[in-house]
Design a protein around this nucleic acid. Structure first.
Length: 608
RNA sequence: CGGGGUGUAGCUCAGCUUGGCAGAGCGCUUCGUUCGGGACGAAGAGGUCCGCGGUUCAAAUCCGCGCACCCCGACCA
């Protein structure tokens, strides 16, 4: 590609909407262009990167035995009703009607479509196992797009779906995808850590996320400093710091005027936060029935309520059953709760009937806590669970935090501690189990003439997120440093003063042809620009290798060769340039091995 | 959806307080000089000042109502 013909220009200054390095560099380099909130065009350079990422994904998916299909982005809304997910997805689902007033949806994901597809074509256990995948545009009406390509409303996703006869089969399909994912992220130069994750509204029996650790991330990830345990904070298990032991003492009221936070309470009474109980109120909605009810969540004062865990604790038949939101002030008032002095002890009578009180495990064996008195200006000392109040449910509803003990280490006799980091979800693999096949009544014939309900897995990767993360992981003050396999071009050929030196111009043209002939993608800067402009653009755009042809170099019979990440350029004899470029490329590809990338993955970005 | 911010040239922004010719730098076009890390000079092109309504002799500027975008939170298969 001749740069003089390339659509799009570099910018010296980044547009103000860019708030992360990757977003700023992609805009400055002319890789992407925003059309509206959360919707982007991939310009020629960005499109090439995207295509290269998709190519890596295709190779690994095909290598893992998955078969590519293209499913429709536009779908009948009733298909979403068949699993109850039209309601569950809520406003995130883009919905529209056609000219006959038929209700349609733009696909945010394809479990329903693929399950229906499978059902239409698979009839026997002999058709199992099968894994289908597609690389396709998804639509989600996100409440708040952000971070450039990180959270968008229209995006390209690779989604794969496996169908197996039994759990052992699912394990095999799941592991094949898991290993393919490791290779995909490594080849794209994006260091990721697999973490235990909550399955969210997609349902199923457990999932793992591949997380790129970065301080611009929107998820909080908990990692052990001793073992390999890593989990999304939504899911992370941990060892609760011990409570202060003691025999239950008589309950007593204490005046605490104006003391409405745990921090203030602990200071006012001269005690530790773990000697208090914290109450937080939510409204829960049972998705299946639409019934709402108040929830009173209680954790020890040194803990925070984890809404995802709380929702899971309240969901009887699996996840996705309950939706939580914090109570608004008017509801708190209506229920007679005194903000700042709320307590599970002596709840107002109008609450007693329908409220669900949920206690965290941290309250077990935590005697003589200070809790609210349910009247302004007073707390209660020596509150004891079981004696003074009884929860409807006791479970893990608190968030793991940095410094907490690692549960896995504790179980195996070690003393590991957790740390917290921010991260972005690059991919997510789920064991769906028979959630969808059951709801949609899908079965095939088994070997004994009976019916078999296939068990499913689903596996997603965000292509745009990989692109952004690759930049976020590889840039310097001057610009991007693309990982070799996804760079838009392999070589950036810079011609200096070619309009003034016919010999050098011929040399550059010959080199351009030579490199192209062996299959390298070359971006040839043939513009009539000053050297400084060209070098700066080359650094900004970030191709792995830069070659410089000029009068000086041509007279000396050399081509200046520089790896983008290298500090210095080297003069390579004209005859050796091709070999040198290929060696640099091989080296760059090798640096993106699974081992090399995963070694740096857990290092992350520092504490969250 | 709650809170905050911003909308003026392709990009970054000034002008708005106190109403009176639409501005700067970068980028772009042409010419000349220059030519290995974002050159210099000269001459140009480029505007729905986010939109609608109001006040006024006069509105980028004041008032009202919208819209868009960004940030924090809620939400996030």
């Amino acid at each position: 590609m001749r740069m003089s013909r390339m659509f799009g220009h570099t910018l010296r200054e980044a547009p103000t909407e860019a708030d992360t390095p990757s977003h700023a560099l992609l805009l400055r380099g002319g890789y992407i262009d925003q059309l509206m909130s959360g919707v982007y065009t991939f310009m020629p350079l960005g499109h090439r990167v995207k295509r290269n990422i998709e190519q890596v994904i295709r190779e690994e998916m095909d290598g893992a035995g998955a078969q590519e299909v293209t499913m429709p982005a536009i779908q009948p809304a009733e298909l979403w009703d068949s699993t109850g997910r039209r309601a569950a997805m809520g406003d995130v689902l883009f919905q529209l009607t056609d000219r006959r007033d038929r209700e349609l949806a733009l696909g945010p994901t394809h479990e329903e479509v693929v399950t229906r597809l499978f059902s239409d074509h698979a009839v026997s256990y002999r058709d199992l196992p099968v894994t289908l995948y597609q690389i396709q545009t998804k639509f989600r009406d996100e409440a708040r797009p952000r971070g450039g390509l990180i959270r968008v409303r229209e995006f390209t996703m690779k989604d794969a779906y496996s169908f197996d006869a039994d759990d052992a089969g699912l394990d095999g399909s799941y592991n094949a995808m898991f290993e393919a994912y490791r290779r995909i992220f490594a080849r794209c130069g994006v260091p990721t850590v697999p973490v235990q994750a909550d399955s969210g509204a997609i349902g199923g029996k457990g999932s793992q996320e591949f997380i790129f650790l970065t301080n611009i991330g929107e998820d909080t990830i908990i990692l052990c400093d001793t073992c390999t345990y890593a989990a999304n904070q939504e899911k992370a298990e941990f060892v609760r710091p011990a409570a202060i032991p003691g025999d239950p003492a008589p309950i007593e009221e204490v005046a605490t005027p104006g003391v409405t936070s745990i921090e203030a309470l602990a200071e006012f009474l001269g005690i530790e936060a773990r000697q208090t109980a914290k109450a937080v109120f939510f409204m829960a909605k049972q998705n299946s029935t639409g019934v709402t009810y108040p929830v009173f969540a209680v954790v020890r004062g040194d803990m925070d309520v984890n809404e995802v865990k709380l929702a899971n604790a309240l969901s009887v038949g699996g996840r996705g059953g309950v939706e939580l939101r914090p109570m608004v002030d008017s509801e708190i008032a209506a229920y007679g709760i005194v903000a700042g002095y709320a307590s599970p002890v002596g709840l107002p009578s109008e609450l007693q009937s329908d409220v669900r009180v949920v206690a965290d495990l941290s309250l077990d064996a935590a005697p003589n806590l200070v809790a609210g008195a349910n009247k302004p200006g007073f707390h209660l000392r020596n509150v004891n669970l079981g004696r003074d109040w009884t929860p409807a449910v006791t479970g893990d509803i608190a968030s793991a935090q940095a410094g907490h003990g690692c549960a896995r280490c504790a179980a195996e006799g070690r003393d590991g501690h957790l740390r917290a980091e921010r991260g972005i979800e690059m991919g997510h693999v789920f064991r769906l189990d028979t959630t969808y096949t059951n709801k949609m009544n899908v079965a095939v014939q088994d070997a004994n003439g009976g019916q078999l309900t296939p068990t499913m897995g689903c596996y997603g990767i965000g292509v745009g997120r990989i692109l952004s993360a690759a930049v976020e992981a590889h840039f310097d003050d001057a610009g991007i440093q693309w990982p070799a396999e996804i760079a838009p071009y392999d070589v950036h050929l810079v011609g200096i003063g070619l309009d003034r030196d016919a010999e050098a111009a011929a040399d550059a043209e010959a080199l351009y042809a030579e490199l192209t002939k062996v299959g390298l993608d070359v971006l040839f800067d043939d513009r009539d620009e000053r050297p400084g402009v060209k070098f700066n653009d080359a650094d900004l755009l970030g191709m792995p290798v830069r070659l410089t042809v000029s009068s000086r170099n041509t007279k000396a019979g050399v081509v200046e060769t520089k790896a983008r990440a290298a500090a210095e350029a080297e003069s390579v004899a004209r005859a050796d340039v091709l070999a040198r470029v290929q060696a640099l490329r091989a080296e760059a590809i090798a640096s993106c091995s699974v081992e090399a990338i995963e070694r740096i993955a857990r290092a992350g970005s520092g504490p969250a």
